[in-house]
Computed example of a mutant assay.
Amino acid sequence: MAPSGPGGPPQARYDEYEIVPARHPWRWVGTAVVALVLAAVTWSLITNPRWEWGVVAQWFTAESVLRGLVETLKLTAIAGALGFLLGFVLALMRLSKSPLLSSVSWTFSWIFRSTPLLVQLLLWYNLGYLYENISLGIPFTDVRLFEGETTTLMSQFAAAILGLGLHQAAYSAEIIRGGILSVDQGQVEAAAALGIPAWDRSARIVLPQAMRAILPTAFNEIIGLVKGTSVVYVLAYSELFYTVQVIYNRTQQVLPLLLVATLWYVVITSVLSVVQYYVERHYAKGAVRTLPLTPWQKAKRFLATRTPTEARR
């Protein structure tokens, strides 16, 4: 104990204490167990010849597989855009004070969320059985602006887009509605009291904050849509999964071809995850004091901290 001032209690000498690093034995045990499991799985993947990695490499960039990949991306982009645009409209209808608009939006979401996607695709593709012709004109008159046979108009691609897009819209509507409701209504009321127009309140106050709640779930839906396009194989549409099926039915190399499709789905999902990170980081402005570092910024910081250490050595 160090002596204190006149008349005071003795003071502790903290520089005499020994600094003992914290020990985490169970963390090391868990790390070792996980490392062993990963090593065993990796060794099995490398040494088991039945995986036929040579066949996987042969078909991974084959022209037919790449064409199927392009069709999968096309379905995802068009159906995703249709789903979220229609979902945005449905969310606004659900939040409307009009009983009719709110009821129509709720009914749409109820129907399309209650029926399997596979059933919806088959119904759209067989729409010609119910309606032989599709026409567009002025209701309750004989004026027809457009008319055509349903079997001609409802191609495999059109049925896939309608099935995927409308199914996605039902879920997107609830995601967007939940994001809008997550914004503090006090901010909207304060903006209205300041005389800010309704459109500016929605575009500059509500939507930027709602996007922080919408984006994580929305990207999960897009990733699910990428994999959901594989259901379109029932329409014999040549997307990635159907293309792989056609190939392995001919070559009987089932597992390697399934791995080809799996790896391409992993690649697409990984790219979307990276995009999600940067988009969420953009909309985090104003919500956090310091934005999370990008991978490039983390690498630069790591190199900057390592360089002086190496120079001293």
Rank of each mutant, 00 (worst) to 15 (best):
A2H: 11
S4A: 00
S4N: 00
G7R: 03
G8F: 09
Q11G: 00
Q11W: 00
E16S: 10
I19R: 08
A22E: 07
R27D: 04
G30I: 09
T31H: 02
A32T: 12
V34R: 04
T42E: 07
T42P: 01
W43E: 13
S44I: 00
L45I: 11
W51L: 15
G54E: 08
G54H: 03
W59A: 02
T61S: 09
R67N: 03
L69C: 08
E71P: 00
E71T: 06
K74T: 11
A77N: 05
G80Q: 12
A81L: 12
F84P: 01
L90T: 04
M93V: 07
M93A: 15
L95V: 08
K97G: 13
L101Q: 09
S102A: 14
W106S: 09
T107N: 08
S109E: 07
W110Q: 12
I111T: 10
F112N: 02
T115S: 12
P116V: 04
L121I: 14
L123D: 07
L123A: 14
W124E: 06
Y125P: 01
Y129V: 12
L130F: 13
E132D: 15
N133D: 13
I138P: 04
F140Y: 11
T141S: 13
T141F: 08
V143P: 01
L145N: 12
E149L: 15
E149R: 15
S155R: 13
F157M: 10
A158H: 13
I161K: 07
I161L: 15
L164M: 13
G165V: 07
G165I: 06
L166N: 03
H167C: 10
A169Y: 02
A169F: 06
Y171V: 04
S172L: 03
S172H: 03
I175P: 02
I176R: 01
G178H: 00
Q185K: 08
G186T: 05
V188G: 05
E189Y: 09
A190M: 10
A191L: 12
L194R: 00
D200A: 14
S202K: 01
S202F: 12
A203T: 11
A203W: 10
R204T: 00
V206D: 02
Q209Y: 05
Q209M: 08
A213N: 15
L215E: 07
T217V: 15
G228P: 05
G228N: 14
T229Y: 04
S230C: 11
S230E: 08
V232K: 02
V234H: 06
L235R: 03
A236S: 15
Y237G: 01
E239Q: 10
Y242C: 01
Y242S: 01
Y248L: 03
N249L: 13
R250N: 11
T251A: 06
Q252W: 14
V260H: 01
W264F: 08
Y265H: 06
S270K: 11
V271S: 11
E280F: 09
R281N: 09
H282M: 04
A284D: 07
G286I: 08
G286K: 07
L291P: 02
P292A: 05
T294P: 04
K298C: 07
A299D: 04
K300T: 01
R301P: 00
L303T: 06
L303V: 09
R306Y: 01
P308L: 11
P308M: 11
T309L: 11
T309A: 10
E310P: 00
